[in-house]
Every structure is written in C-alpha cells, then in structure tokens.
Simulated scan of single mutants.
Amino acid sequence: MTAPEGAAALVVLVGPPASGKTTVGTALAAELGTSFRDTDHDVEAEAGTSVADLFVTEGEAHFRALEERAVARALAEHSGVLALGGGAVTSAHTRALLVAHGAAGGTVVWLDVDLASAAKRVGLSRDRPILGVNPRQMLRQMLETRAPLYGEVSTLHLQTGSRPVRDVLADVLAALPAVGSSR
C-alpha cells in the first residue's frame, strides 16, 4: 500500500558506499508498491552535474551543503523509500532530522557492510570521488569514523556484506510497522 502524499518517508536507508542502499531501496520500494528516491540524484538534478564532478569543480563542502538541503527536502516531501548518500550523516543537521524521524515512528535502516565486501563492490569506481586514490584505505576510514553516526540515527542495523538482497529485504520488511495502519 502506498503511503499518502505529504507523509514522511516510509523507510530511510543510510550506510557507507557499496552497502546496498540503491539495490535494497529499489527492491523494497517495488515490494511496498511505492517510489524510490536517492538524495544523490536530487543533488545532481539541482546542480546539473554529477556528484563526482561537483567534488572536483566545487569541492566537498559545496556538495555537502547541497546534500543537506536535499535530505531535508526529501524527508519532508517523500513518502516512499529514501536512500541517502553515504556521507549525509556527517551533517549534524541531517542527523537531527533522522533522529527526529525515528523518534516519530519512522524507520531509518543502517545498511552496514564489511570492508572486504565494500571494496569488492566499489572496485575502482570513478563515480565515488570521496574514495580518492586509495579506495580501500578510504573505505576503511569511512567505515570506522562514520559507524557511530549511522548508529546514532538508525532504528534498525543490518549487515549486507555477503548476504543476498532478498534476505536483507526480508529483514527490513519484518521490522516495518504494518504499512497502512498508521500512515
């Protein structure tokens, strides 16, 4: 059942790069009969360029400011499944919005991934500029430094590393309140 327009996001997915936010998010949206939205795509639409190009031409601080606005807008407008960029939780404002969303009964799922699985999934992707020259080292650092931030905002923590998408999806669905009963 689709949540009514104007309602808060049904499920918000957070986690590091390569944790499965897009893959799980699109599958979850299809299962729930709702829409999927990715704040990185919102930023790209607003800026008229890719996230990778924004990092190169405008810098990370500019991207993070656009991302913070995109997350706030999406949390207010979107009633389906919402995926946030891996670094969105580095903003204190975004974390406060996510904590409030969870406190109000919303579901914020931290999709976690181990270093080996993340490195394998990312490879040497040029679409992930934050990973820089040494993707494995940057992933290790991000996993370690951002884990407490993901933990702060999440209402559900799931490992995705070597698990099939269908298993992760089943765990998310099992944790959701009855869709439609209170929305």
Score class of each variant (00 low, 15 high):
residue 112 D to N: 10
residue 126 R to H: 14
residue 110 W to F: 11
residue 159 Q to M: 14
residue 177 P to G: 13
residue 161 G to R: 02
residue 168 V to Q: 08
residue 83 A to E: 04
residue 38 D to R: 04
residue 75 L to P: 01
residue 75 L to F: 02
residue 27 A to T: 11
residue 21 K to Q: 07
residue 63 F to A: 03
residue 168 V to A: 07
residue 130 I to Q: 13
residue 181 S to H: 15
residue 103 A to S: 11
residue 58 E to S: 15
residue 138 M to Y: 05
residue 45 A to K: 06
residue 8 A to E: 13
residue 47 A to Q: 10
residue 107 T to M: 12
residue 4 P to S: 13
residue 29 A to T: 02
residue 111 L to I: 11
residue 27 A to G: 10
residue 52 A to R: 03
residue 69 R to G: 10
residue 123 G to W: 02
residue 74 A to K: 07
residue 158 L to P: 00
residue 114 D to P: 04
residue 169 L to D: 03
residue 137 Q to N: 08
residue 94 T to V: 15
residue 128 R to E: 02
residue 123 G to Q: 03
residue 161 G to V: 02
residue 156 L to S: 03
residue 85 G to Y: 04
residue 84 L to E: 04
residue 143 L to I: 11
residue 178 A to K: 13
residue 126 R to Y: 00
residue 57 T to N: 12
residue 174 A to H: 11
residue 166 R to M: 10
residue 51 V to K: 05
residue 26 T to V: 14
residue 135 P to H: 09
residue 72 A to Q: 12
residue 111 L to E: 06
residue 2 T to R: 14
residue 15 G to P: 12
residue 24 V to E: 00
residue 175 A to Q: 12
residue 67 E to W: 03
residue 51 V to L: 03
residue 152 E to V: 04
residue 63 F to G: 05
residue 66 L to H: 10
residue 155 T to H: 00
residue 113 V to W: 02
residue 86 G to I: 01
residue 51 V to N: 04
residue 71 V to M: 05
residue 60 E to V: 00
residue 138 M to T: 15
residue 9 A to L: 07
residue 162 S to M: 11
residue 98 L to P: 00
residue 166 R to Q: 14
residue 6 G to M: 08
residue 91 S to M: 11
residue 116 A to G: 07
residue 136 R to S: 07
residue 36 F to E: 07
residue 102 G to Y: 00
residue 161 G to K: 06
residue 169 L to A: 05
residue 69 R to M: 05
residue 4 P to F: 03
residue 70 A to L: 02
residue 87 G to L: 08
residue 83 A to W: 04
residue 137 Q to R: 09
residue 162 S to F: 07
residue 150 Y to P: 01
residue 155 T to K: 07
residue 75 L to C: 03
residue 2 T to V: 13
residue 53 D to E: 15
residue 45 A to S: 09
residue 82 L to F: 01
residue 67 E to K: 03
residue 142 M to A: 14
residue 181 S to D: 14
residue 70 A to K: 05
residue 120 K to N: 10
residue 128 R to L: 11
residue 137 Q to E: 15
residue 132 G to C: 10
residue 153 V to I: 12
residue 181 S to K: 14
residue 18 A to W: 04
residue 38 D to L: 02
residue 139 L to N: 03
residue 19 S to W: 02
residue 27 A to H: 09
residue 124 L to C: 13
